[in-house]
Design a protein around this nucleic acid. Structure first.
Length: 309
DNA sequence: TAGCCGTGGAG
DNA sequence: TCTCCAAGGCT
């Protein structure tokens, strides 16, 4: 007598399991034929290379990450190498990738790895999650891509693929829902090897084929099973997905201020920073924000620089 | 949890 | 020109 291993007897869960089984092979086969040759996918990248790439790829396109990634790994081939530097050097090397707090967090993660993990990127999901700048997605991605573990890796690409293929809608919800996590787990292959391939493959499918706009169903390996396509590709319903305005925001001002600090070799006088933005209240708020975030360091005499510690 | 946090390319 | 979007995390 075999005892059921599934915690639920839900027919829906069984149906999803069956759907997953139908999708795995075509998506993984497609991936092995069409995957981009990205440096962090090569064996030589190692777990540190994978982790660095994941930080840089948070909200930043692959093409822009590539050159910075190469320089970063050449300069800091191990976590301890980065940990030995001032955090401001990480911010400087980050260049114009955007969201420079990621650079600070990556530096902080390198310090923590050096202090708590003997200089090796931890393999356990919980330990990864405890590092600064690593959330649910990145922890799963590093554990899966660097260590071949079985995790539901839910990024914006995968969420879109699942929304379409399984749920039959054009776009996933704004924020990741419990239902999405459940779906991702239900679709996850049982064995580690296949699961980690599936994670990378489903993500690549979303990045290259099942894109947000101008999706290419004719090249999609699971078009014949896609619920959204079979339903006639109905347009997104509900509230418009909020767009981010940028011009005139504090973010723009912060960006300008930090650009000056990044390019300066010596501490910068307040008067120089003042030139980047006309409106004084917003300008001051932005600068204060950078200091509060640890991205800028105020010195005596109204001077500012990237953080030394 | 909704809002904040950069930047630049594509259509 | 303008809108949308790109391997999220944090509070």
């Amino acid at each position: 007598m075999t005892v059921p291993t599934k915690p639920t007897s839900s027919a829906q869960a069984d149906a999803l399991g069956a759907l997953g089984a139908d999708l795995h092979a075509p998506v993984i086969d497609w991936f092995e034929e069409n995957a981009r040759d990205l440096p962090w996918r090569r064996a030589e990248a190692g777990s540190w290379g994978v982790m660095v790439s994941e930080f840089m790829l948070q909200q930043t396109p692959v093409n822009r990450v590539l050159p910075v990634y190469e320089q970063w790994l050449a300069r800091w081939p191990r976590p301890a190498d980065l940990a030995a530097e001032a955090p401001g050097e990480a911010v400087r090397a980050w260049g114009r990738l955007g969201y420079p707090r990621r650079a600070l967090r990556l530096h902080g993660a390198a310090v923590a790895i050096t202090e708590r993990h003997g200089g090796d990127v931890p393999a356990e999901h919980a330990q990864l999650l405890a590092l600064p700048g690593i959330g649910e997605y990145t922890a799963a991605a590093v554990a899966s891509f660097a260590y071949g573990q079985r995790h539901a890796v839910l990024d914006t690409n995968v969420r879109r693929v699942f929304a379409r293929a399984a749920s039959g809608v054009q776009y996933p919800p704004n924020a990741t829902t419990a239902a999405e996590r459940k779906l991702a787990r239900a679709l996850l292959p049982d064995d580690e090897r296949t699961a980690s391939l599936w994670a990378a493959a489903s993500m690549e499918l979303g990045a290259l084929i099942c894109t947000a706009k101008n999706e290419s169903c004719v090249r999609c390996p699971i078009a014949s099973r896609c619920a959204w396509r079979l339903a006639g590709k109905p347009a997104h319903e509900g509230p418009p997905r909020r767009g981010q305005t940028y011009a005139g925001t504090d973010r723009q001002v912060r960006g300008r201020l930090l650009a000056v600090l990044r390019e300066a070799v010596a501490p910068v006088p307040q008067s120089v920073l003042d030139r980047v933005w006309e409106e004084p209240v917003q300008r001051a708020r932005a600068l204060d924000g950078l200091v509060a975030d640890g991205l800028a360091e105020p010195l005596a005499g109204g001077l500012y620089r990237l953080p030394l510690a």
